[in-house]
Design a protein around this nucleic acid. Structure first.
Length: 435
RNA sequence: GUGAGAGUAGCUCAGUUGGUUAGAGCACCGGAUUGUGGAUCCGGGGGUCGCGGGUUCGAAUCCCGUCUUUCACCCCA
């Protein structure tokens, strides 16, 4: 009986696994060089953990289960609640600032489509306990550092930065009541995803007052910091938020990634989670969903029973990223292909000599393979080629008699005959992985 | 939850007035080649034409149902 793969999951055959490792290894490398420490948690948690800050719709999109003790559990759809739980548990003992990253495997029971699956990996970076805008810039810099590292340029991707705090203050100053903010966010978030006239129409439905509508429209159309500065009164509440964005952008400019970053009032982001600077990275063409998103969240730790400590972070999934890297042709050159150091080929009856040699090579930290079939030398060389062997060691009865081995360089085709012991003593035994 | 498309070999796909034993390229395995690889040539394996029902002398092909899948909407932590 043939059993198909589960909807929304992926099988990682060796070439796919190479791509996944390339992406994940890059995330980890960049996290470490930006000063983050790695953490992880369990792959399932109590179901109620995901009900704390989420609406019904999101809870419906969980893979949930009941264990034999009757506990209601769910496969993690995100790692931030786990992070909040872990940090809260040891809040007083942890050295500050908390600057952590993780690459969790996540599960969401959504309908799969382009760039969205039910099982995926997501790079998360968070800095907890510092409320300065400089730290938002750190998160964004680390994000760009990765994108740059895999070969994406400002012409390929843009970091669109905005501020929930600014938006809230501006809307309030226009007379929008607090209880209307949430529903207005939902509409404002669609700017850039909808045609301009459709967007204006939806906005008009939310804002009956013509004068207020005109002001909001004007604000949403400003996409330059100096222009924004002219609109905002110094000393007002929104001025402080404006200064934060300005500082973040200036810091990113100083750090050399200004070309990637722009102010975009259309970035609002999903739920009521975010409280300050927010950002998303999009492909320049704009035909993919967001590559990543993040921002400042002030209340999350408190909502999970901890102290009111400010935090800021970013999450990047592997699905959209992989599509983009493929489209840009950045994977072929960078993803390492299968490669082994030595392939041992034998001719005729040489007893156990080949196995002795291959074991020696492996114990010295070199990758080595041998053919499991009895075939001619031609066949074995073909197999060595197929496995992308760097060098081939050739041993026949003649070589065995003289305690020698043939070493063939598979790239150049050149071959030399050397003494076996001489060969091993000449090898650099300080290879990574050596015992 | 709503809507549109697609299911033929491992992959990409041909395959119409409905008619022998369902094809190609790539991939895989083998041979040419039991002491020299990547190329080339030759050969081979691999299919319940998604599944079920119907129409018909006869269905990959027409009709109905169903499942799977892709894309979009909703949502997107």
């Amino acid at each position: 009986m043939k059993i198909p793969p589960v909807k929304g999951t992926r099988d990682f055959y060796p070439p796919d696994m190479a791509i996944r490792n390339f992406i994940v290894d890059g995330w980890k490398k960049v996290s470490l060089r930006n000063g983050f420490e790695e953490y992880d948690g369990p792959i399932f948690e109590y179901l109620k953990m995901y009900q704390i800050k989420s609406g019904d719709e999101i809870v419906e999109q969980l893979f949930s289960l009941t264990d034999r003790g009757g506990r209601d559990l769910a496969l993690r759809p995100e790692i931030t609640p786990t992070l909040a739980r872990m940090v809260n548990q040891q809040i007083n003992a942890l050295p500050k600032p908390i600057k952590w990253f993780s690459v969790p495997r996540l599960f969401r029971a959504e309908r799969p489509q382009k760039g969205r699956l039910r099982e995926f990996f997501q790079w998360n970076i968070d800095i907890i306990g510092v409320d300065q805008p400089l730290v938002d810039a750190e998160i964004i810099f680390t994000t760009v550092d990765y994108l740059r590292n895999v070969g994406l340029a400002p012409k390929d991707v843009k970091v669109k930065i905005s501020s929930r705090k600014l938006l809230a203050a501006v809307l309030k100053s226009y007379g929008v009541p607090d209880e209307k903010l949430e529903s207005l966010y939902v509409v404002l978030d669609k700017k850039g995803k909808l045609p301009a006239d459709t967007f204006e129409q939806m906005l008009a439905e939310q804002v009956p007052d013509k004068e207020t509508l005109a002001k909001i429209s004007e604000f949403m159309q400003i996409d330059s910091i100096p222009e924004l500065g002219e609109l905002i009164d110094a000393g007002s509440e929104e001025f402080a938020a404006y200064n934060e964005i300005k500082e973040v952008l200036a810091t990113l400019e100083t750090m050399g990634v200004g070309d990637f970053c722009i102010y975009d009032p259309g970035i609002v982001r999903g739920l009521a989670y975010y409280t300050g600077i927010v950002f998303e990275v999009h492909d320049a063409v704009g035909d993919l969903r967001a590559i990543c998103g993040g921002g400042r969240y002030d209340n999350l730790l408190r909502d999970f029973g901890g102290p009111a400590i400010s935090a800021t972070g970013m999450g990047m999934g592997d699905c959209v990223l992989e599509i983009l890297l493929k489209e840009k042709g950045l994977l072929d050159q960078q993803v390492p292909k299968r490669q082994i150091d030595y392939f041992v080929a034998c001719i005729g009856d040489i007893g156990n000599e080949a196995w002795r040699i291959i074991a020696k090579l492996r114990s010295m930290g070199y990758s080595a393979n041998i053919s499991y079939k009895t075939g001619g030398l031609s066949k074995q060389l073909k197999e060595a080629s197929a496995q992308n062997a760097n060098k081939c060691i050739i041993i026949g009865e003649e070589e065995l008699k003289e305690s020698k081995i043939g070493i063939k360089d598979m790239a150049t085709g050149e071959q030399e005959l050397v003494g076996r012991d001489e060969f091993f003593s000449g090898l650099d035994s300080a290879v990574v992985g050596t015992e």
